[in-house]
Amino acid sequence: MMKMLRAMREPLKYVQGRDALLQFHKEMEYMGKRWLFVCSNSGYKACHEKLEKSFGTSDDYRRYEIFGGISSNGEIKKMMAIVEEDKIDTVVAVGGGSAVDTAKATAYYTGKHIVILPTVAATDAPCTGLSVIYNDDHSFDRYLFYPTNPDAVMVDTTIIANAPVKFLIAGMGDALGTYFEGRASIRTESSSLEGTGITRAGQALARLCYD
């Protein structure tokens, strides 16, 4: 019997720090000149000013769209149409899990780069290679798995720290649980959602997070 493969997946680039969004353009400009920011209401308010400052005198095209609050098929199609009409190079998610899942699906279906700017710590969506997709009536539709994880994730720790405390607490709880989930998977030779086993390197990161 063939032994189960182990695999570790992560974003191609990860940037984190206080007021990191002020360096957004400097860190991400290699991805193109035309940007679509898929934002939650709170994400737009928290990030727009810093993002605009990061572009400085650049003449890059930027479009900010407030999405409908859920990663539905209709919202994804709406954002895909904008990507095509405005000849967007890179889709950027600004907000929590639903905004991130919407942006990831939009980028995947249009073949564009994807950058994630999370505004809360309470979701796995920024670094993972899947989206949870809903129907337009808010009923669950499917899990959409991607062949790769996001091109880049940028975490502005000032924004994370200023988010409602409940989101930080939820994120801490989720992070603590990851270590035990990974340990159980390794001990039982069980596969992850992506069908492969957990690597020792991945488990070491989970333990570091727990500690």
Rank of each mutant, 00 (worst) to 15 (best):
G129W: 10
T119R: 07
S190Y: 08
L193N: 10
I116E: 14
T123L: 05
R142W: 03
D151Q: 12
D151I: 10
P164W: 13
P150I: 09
G32I: 02
L117R: 12
L130V: 11
Y44K: 15
A99C: 09
D136T: 03
L176D: 01
S71L: 03
N41C: 06
D89E: 09
A99N: 04
V92P: 05
M2G: 01
A204C: 05
E85F: 10
A152Q: 06
I186Q: 13
F140Y: 14
E194H: 14
F145E: 02
M172H: 07
D124C: 14
V115Y: 10
E75C: 01
E10F: 13
F167Y: 15
S139A: 09
A161L: 03
A105Y: 02
Y134C: 01
G68W: 01
L205S: 04
L168T: 14
M2I: 10
Y61W: 11
M4L: 13
A161N: 08
I159A: 10
G197D: 06
V153C: 03
F167G: 09
S98N: 08
L176S: 02
Y108T: 00
N149Q: 10
E27T: 02
T106F: 11
D141N: 15
K166Y: 12
T178D: 01
V91R: 14
I82M: 11
S190N: 14
V120L: 11
C209D: 08
D59P: 00
L51W: 06
Y146P: 00
T102M: 02
A206N: 06
Y146K: 02
Y179R: 02
N73A: 00
I160G: 08
R183P: 00
C209F: 04
D59K: 11
G74R: 04
K104V: 07
V120Y: 03
D101L: 05
I133N: 02
S54A: 12
V83Q: 06
I66K: 15
H25D: 06
E84I: 05
K78I: 03
Y109M: 14
L205W: 06
Y30K: 12
T128S: 15
E27G: 00
E194C: 11
L22R: 06
P147D: 11
K78H: 14
A99F: 09
A99K: 08
E194L: 15
G202A: 09
I116S: 15
R9S: 12
Y109F: 15
D156A: 05
G111T: 06
N162R: 13
P150Q: 10
L208Y: 12
M31S: 13
E27F: 10
Y108P: 00
Y179F: 13
S40C: 08
V132S: 11
A206Q: 07
M80C: 15
K26A: 13
M172D: 09
V165W: 02
M4I: 11
R187N: 11
G129A: 14
G17K: 08
Y108C: 04
L21Y: 15
Y179C: 03
I160R: 10
D19L: 07
A103E: 05
F24D: 04
A204F: 04
A125Y: 04
A206F: 05
R183K: 13
V83T: 09
L193Y: 04
M28G: 04
T102L: 08
A107G: 03
K3I: 09
S185P: 01
E75F: 00
T123C: 04
T110K: 15
R18N: 07
T196Y: 15
E85T: 13
A121Q: 05
E75R: 04
R9M: 13
Q16N: 01
A163M: 08
A46S: 14
